[in-house]
Simulated scan of single mutants.
Amino acid sequence: MFRHIVLFRVRDDVTDPDVLSAIDALRGLGNEPGVATWTIQLSLDTRKGRIIVEDGTFVDADAFTAWRGGEAHRVVAERMSTIADWWVGDWEE
């Protein structure tokens, strides 16, 4: 299995409807081939701002590489770059 965790720190000037729309777009990425589990949630802890948590498991590293290189991921990543900065953690289990 291949794990992929992203913490998106949403910029302060982004509206709540735009955050909810981004969450919907991120959730759609879980329907791609090779995704074993997929969770997108807005963190309950807002002390450091609004954080969107992406927690995914892929069947293997090759599935992750294909997913990351896909058109759906490119489109959503481009969109997220306009509203957030992020930190990524990837590892094999």
Rank of each mutant, 00 (worst) to 15 (best):
A84T: 12
M80Y: 02
Q41A: 12
D18P: 00
F58S: 05
T15D: 05
L29R: 07
L26Y: 12
W91C: 11
I51G: 02
V35C: 13
E93P: 11
T82D: 07
R50K: 15
G49H: 05
A66T: 13
R3Y: 15
G49N: 02
R3D: 14
I83D: 14
E71H: 04
G89N: 14
H4L: 13
S43Y: 03
A84S: 15
D90R: 03
L7I: 05
A61D: 08
G28H: 14
V76S: 06
D90L: 10
L44M: 12
M80Q: 04
D55C: 07
A63C: 05
W38F: 15
R27I: 09
E54C: 11
L29M: 14
A25G: 08
A77V: 08
V35A: 15
T15E: 09
D90E: 14
I83R: 08
G28K: 14
V14Y: 06
N31R: 08
V14M: 03
T39S: 10
P33M: 12
D45Q: 08
V53H: 05
S43I: 07
S81V: 11
T46D: 12
V88C: 06
V6P: 04
P33A: 13
D16H: 00
I40C: 10
L20A: 07
W87H: 12
A66G: 02
T82L: 15
G30K: 14
G89Q: 14
T65C: 02
V10S: 00
V10Y: 04
H4G: 09
F8G: 02
F2N: 07
A61C: 01
V10M: 05
A22W: 09
L7Q: 02
R27T: 10
T15P: 01
I5Q: 04
S81R: 02
T65G: 06
W67M: 03
G49F: 13
G69Q: 03
V59F: 00
Q41R: 06
F8N: 04
D45M: 07
A61T: 04
V10R: 00
G30A: 15
V88S: 06
D16S: 05
I23F: 05
D18G: 00
E71K: 01
A25D: 14
G89M: 12
K48R: 10
W67K: 00
D85K: 03
W87N: 08
D62S: 06
A61E: 11
N31L: 13
A77R: 03
A61K: 07
S81M: 05
T57V: 09
E32C: 12
T39H: 10
L7H: 00
A72Y: 03
G70C: 07
S21T: 06
S43W: 08
F2I: 14
I83K: 11
A66Y: 00
A66L: 08
A72P: 07
A61Q: 07
A36S: 15
I83L: 15
D60N: 08
F64I: 02
E54V: 13
E32P: 05
V6Y: 02
E92R: 04
E71G: 01
G56V: 11
A66N: 03
F8Y: 10
W38P: 10
A36M: 12
V76R: 03
D24I: 09
A36Y: 11
L20Q: 09
T15V: 01
R79W: 04
D18T: 06
A25I: 08
W86N: 09
D90P: 13
L42C: 10
E71M: 09
D60S: 04
P33F: 11
W91Q: 09
T82P: 04
S43M: 07
V35H: 01
I23K: 09
